[in-house]
Design a protein around this nucleic acid. Structure first.
Lengths: 237, 237
DNA sequence: CGAAAGTGTGGAGAAATCTTAAAGAAAAGG
DNA sequence: CCTTTTCTTTAAGATTTCTCCACACTTTCG
């Protein structure tokens, strides 16, 4: 399952056999991803750059441009995981040796569930890589501390229980003090750009956040409503 | 003049397939290291002692002397990190367990970026080691003690029978109190990066662990569910 | 001031996520 | 081999969180 399940996550499936892409599309949907189908190499490449899928499934044998070539092209610009689908007998040494840079490969005939298992695995490996000690993980303003690594928030060193969305919302606001976030901004960055719900949902979350945090005094900062616009985290001087 | 008198950092790549060593050499260079290529086990060993590389990448299957043997020889004289490259299906328990002493392993097929990630990881661990000198093998929190060397767990000095995965899971969590582990994190670090199963498996293990440990009181700590995120080991104040 | 538009809030139902149990699959041990 | 243990998968039921609505309240502006 994707880390942020509300975001629309595309998976590109490139194969010239529609029976295969159909079956895989269904599985991909069942796992909560949005399938993106291409029937030849060129189409695969252009869709890749247009949609930026999270994983690419490439049949090695395709019209116009074969899977190796597509993979190589993708690798020049991106680290997006690529899984090659090869016919039995293909030698993986060769695949690797040609500097294609695929992340995994599957030998035909495969079961769709096997494919999805590999997709999950490849994505899982990915998420580890992302969190490799470079980004800010902790933030303190006044008597509030948020630690995203622990997924926790402290007021006066005392932990305050927050739900995921609440925590992400404070984190987003507090990381950009003084910056105005419209409700749509917040929906986009926290809920995901494919969220089709009410903008007022943000209000409810702000309400809950305030309810929890205002149980403590915090003269150094506050979450301010900007009339007709949105919310912002302000630091009081 | 010995080659290692310069401040050049070598990485030894041993594989009898020149395509693979070529690809890896390029990646190694890109990361600022100097690749050192060997096409069989004996060559690997002699180059190792001549150049004293900072990391060794060993294919398990090589002419003259296989990767296990090379690794064992290196271990007799040095703590230089060794990463073994194995074919899928090799038993990793055997690799990591027996007297071979490798630091990590990679299953073919691998993507070059994955290899480099592991090289970085192993080097990072190494530098830490230098400062800490001895790794923790035993951990006590409240009335629980885990000894990972003897693979056992005690509650109130009374041994509780745990399966391997259960023990490794508690060990991982308890060694990083307060830190959130997503299910994917746990799958990666305990099950391994080439595990192709369901995320929910983690839940089942957590349930069993709780079942066993909650038979005892342990007010000092607990394994907490972080909704929508994962699990963490918390210390109660 | 009064109307219109925007925001705060409580609560109920919906949705998402977890727990648990149970059974099948895989691995380990005789 | 067959038995036992451990691991994985699945699905129903429980729990938590999220969303939405109705209505009160506030601000803006003619």
């Amino acid at each position: 399952m994707p880390a942020n399940s509300t975001n629309m996550q595309y998976i590109l499936i490139a194969d010239d056999n529609p029976d295969i892409t159909d079956v895989l599309s269904n599985y991909v949907k069942k796992e909560g991803y949005e399938p993106l189908v291409a029937s030849d190499g060129e189409e695969a490449l252009s869709k890749f750059f247009e949609y930026q899928p999270v994983v690419v499934l490439l049949d090695v044998m395709m019209p116009k441009m074969d899977g190796y070539e597509v993979c190589r092209n993708i690798r020049e610009k991106s680290d997006t995981p690529v899984i090659l689908v090869t016919a039995r007998g293909e030698d993986f040494e060769r695949i690797m040796g040609l500097d294609i840079g695929a992340d995994d490969y599957i030998v035909k005939p495969f079961s769709p569930s096997e494919v999805m298992a590999r997709v999950r695995a490849v994505l899982r490996r990915m998420t580890k890589h992302d969190h490799e000690e470079n980004e800010r993980t902790r933030l303190t303003i006044g008597n509030m501390t948020i630690d995203i690594k622990e997924y926790s928030l402290y007021m006066n060193n005392e932990q305050v229980s927050m739900t995921k969305k609440e925590l992400e919302t404070v984190w987003t606001l507090a990381n950009n003090p003084e910056k105005l976030f419209t409700r749509d901004n917040l929906l986009n960055s926290i809920w995901g750009y494919d969220y089709y719900g009410e903008t007022r949902t943000v209000d409810t979350h702000i309400k809950r956040i305030r309810g929890k945090l205002d149980a403590y005094e915090h003269p150094e900062w506050s979450i301010k409503t900007v009339w007709g616009a949105g919310y912002k985290f302000v630091i009081n001087k």
